[in-house]
Design a protein around this nucleic acid. Structure first.
Lengths: 208, 208, 208, 208
DNA sequence: AATGAATGAGGTTTCATTCAT
DNA sequence: AATGAATGAAACCTCATTCAT
């Protein structure tokens, strides 16, 4: 009689589908303005079904924030940790790679939310700090210190040097989320990465 | 008995007091979680009185975001526009100045909100873009192009160069709002400014 | 592989098992706070299976309230109806018997629910009235009237006399459900029965 | 233009009006089935206004249970504590008084709820135990012990004697709430009190 | 000009019930 | 006969906004 069943069983796929829908809605509206209704609709579910997989709106938000980036960060860090050559060349490789990732993953939107909701969800900011920011920063600082010890890089506080290296990439990511949708010029992250890395390395390397 | 009605006191100050209270609450809680009740209480008023000065919560939010920074930006821009010497020296002066301002004004908190609410309040992001970001960026780009024309600075896309120069300051501001409250190490903005400006200028200047 | 489908096991027992689980959950939580999920879990079934045996939560509730006591009441009433000796001695036997039953059956908990839900489920209160309360009361009233006719008992409204006889037992049952779990002293129902029956019979019997 | 204002200020009267409406709805439906909407409507208010006076539905429920009886209990206990004559005569006065109060106050309905919700709101059962039941029981037990010491009353556990005295009154109250609305015969509490007190005293007094 | 009681729309969450498997 | 994913109708509670005082 009725051609279309009201719903179909898909338990295994559901969490992923819900998180995908939630990423879209949360990043578009922010935590508070996101409505469970809309997430459910985009996931092709009823509101109540969401609660089979996530106990609260906050739990869903946490899942979004943690799932969105963690896997990709590992990959980058592992590559860097396994690097054999000199520090400057590693940096030359690393920044464009990160720029490429940032272009295709929802990093920017999630980062925006982590920043925006850090007061209301300190734990999420902590997750990002502990799993994304701190590891990346530590790795960079260690590499810079090594480069300085080997005489490849000029002296200076390694943490600040790391800021000098990474900041334009992150700012570009935020820019693309915040100002580009308004009609402000887009940012070509890989291009920025290429030019910036050369500029800053020229200022950091001992011989050129 | 009391001949003086209690609200005769101040009058013209009210809007400013309300905005001041609103800055505190909005930056502490974000737009959605901020309650008019609390803003009113901090302004020493009743909830209803707020509506005599601002039609809606959004209007108050707009006032906060617009008023919070505009005046200070002008000052910096005017100083820079009036600069007579070479571009590198201007930059050497500018970054620490900005760093100092960012330490005492609520720029970071408001910037965080502008970023976080940019999807829900595009006009606010636009205000910031048009009144803060774009003017500063334009000025910097013009200066850089001039420096390049005069042979003081190496070639390269001026906009990216501007990013290379400013990004660590802005990222530091955001960091202090997002991660420092969690116990992550603080960022000494003026120190970052001093080291970064020398590093990046060493990579930008033609002769050193 | 597994030739035996898992639900082939029992079959006829199911309703009884469900009611048993439901008694536990309903008496622990009350009607509204009882969740079908929990009843199903305790019965070793899934939620959906419950609906094969009971159309609604209310239907299950009705089954609980009706089944919980009916069989036991019959026994007591039959014993009393078959009594051959004098009324006072019957009462001396009856009250401790009832007290003993009340100690091991969930009468108290179910009585509590019948009382608590009587407005929302008048029919259940009616079942209890018609099948438990009224028969017992009628029997007692008839016996008392007979005793008065034979000169064994003093005059007075038989219904009130029946109240005088039975009330402490019922109140004790309720007390044990309501106040004892809070740490209030327990009630030794049989002991109360023994003392009360002697006190009240001393006031009812014509010669002592 | 508009003859009737949408609402009128009546802050001081509100809590009482709300509790009165809540008593009606809670006692009619029980805690879970009572809807704030209906309480508000009966109090002539909107749903939201309730929350200006009571933080949660539970808080309102607590207010109902505590407010409904406390004042009246005090009065009875004080009268009894000030009694000068013999114990039997005090009891002869006390029971009809209690019966009269129970006829005009919502004691029965509230008692029913305390019993029905004791598992979900143990603290309310405790309030009733501590403020109503225990004081009354203690007083009675003390009076009975005094009567026994003076030789007016026969020996026996005072607590059980107190049960023997009071139980029919309480049971009558519950009966009137549970079975009378169904068409079962009403209980004339004062009449029950008069006959019961004589019956039971005849069994308790040493000389008659 | 100011108050704060009252409104009412809207959101999250729960859970009895249904139904594809 | 059984499962449990999915539905959808409430219900509680919040809070920006209004308006009688």
């Amino acid at each position: 009689m009725n051609a279309e069943p009201r719903w179909r069983r898909r338990k295994a796929d559901r969490p992923g589908e819900i998180v995908a829908a939630a990423i879209a809605v949360f990043t578009e509206r922010g935590f508070a303005a996101a409505r469970i209704d809309e997430i459910a609709a985009r996931a092709g579910l009823s509101k109540g079904a969401i609660y089979r997989y996530f106990d609260t709106k906050e739990a869903l938000f946490r899942a979004v924030v943690t799932d969105a980036v963690r896997p990709n960060v590992r990959k980058v860090l592992d590559t860097a940790a396994a690097w054999q050559g000199g520090v400057p060349d590693l940096v030359r490789m690393l920044l464009p790679t990160v720029a490429g990732l940032a272009m295709k993953l929802p990093v920017g939107a999630v980062l925006k939310m982590v920043i925006g909701e850090s007061r209301n969800f300190p734990e999420l900011a902590r997750v990002w700090h502990d799993e994304v920011v701190q590891p990346a920063l530590s790795l960079l600082m260690r590499l810079i210190a090594e480069g300085q010890a080997r005489g490849e890089l000029r002296p200076g506080d390694p943490r600040t040097h790391a800021f000098s290296l990474m900041a334009p990439m992150l700012l570009g990511v935020i820019w693309r989320e915040t100002f580009t949708p308004l009609g402000a010029g887009d940012v070509d992250l890989p291009a920025v990465a290429r030019q910036h890395v050369e500029t800053v390395l020229a200022g950091m390397e001992t011989r050129r």
